[in-house]
């Protein structure tokens, strides 16, 4: 944590940059890091919690090994994204925003990835999948399950 903090000035405007880096490093924001940031920037812990829970980018829970994002933008929506989301939820047995008990998969939705021409779009571990159907997403998830 100290290594991360040292890279930043002790100014409030650095807070979101720091949170981004912690999220990237650990995959979530560990509670202990909040007190470290609080001491470093001299912002109360409660305020940092307020800010980090306000933004969708930050999570207080570790994510799964494979992170699935389903785009729910307008273009994806009218091309059937809600059905895709339901199917993934059914396949994994979790809701959006949750992680499977074995910590293998976590699922979240995003408002728009800006790939509207090739929707519906899903992103798994940074790989984009375009023009997905319920059938296609099922086989993609099965592949991931098989690897494990």
């Amino acid at each position: 944590m100290d290594i991360i903090l040292k890279r930043y000035k002790t100014e409030r405007k650095e807070l979101i940059h720091i949170l981004h880096e912690v999220q990237k490093e650990y995959g979530y924001i560990p509670v202990e890091s909040v007190s470290a940031i609080s001491k470093y920037l001299r912002i109360s812990e409660s305020e940092i919690f307020g800010i980090l829970t306000f933004y969708k980018a930050f999570t207080l829970e570790p994510r799964g090994k494979h992170h699935i994002t389903i785009c729910m933008g307008t273009a994806c929506h009218i091309r059937g994204a809600p059905k895709i989301l339901e199917e993934v939820q059914r396949q994994l047995g979790i809701d959006a925003g949750e992680t499977t008990p074995d910590r293998m998969f976590s699922l979240e939705t995003v408002n728009c990835l800006g790939c509207c021409a090739i929707g519906p779009v899903a992103v798994i571990d940074g790989n984009y999948y375009s023009n997905i159907t319920t059938k296609k997403i099922n086989s993609i998830i099965k592949e991931y399950k098989k690897i494990e």
């Binding site: 408002n111 800006g114 790939c115």
Partner: peptide, 8 residues
């Protein structure tokens, strides 16, 4: 911060 879904 192009947030409008459907605009890119």
């Amino acid at each position: 911060d192009e947030g409008d879904p459907g605009a890119y």
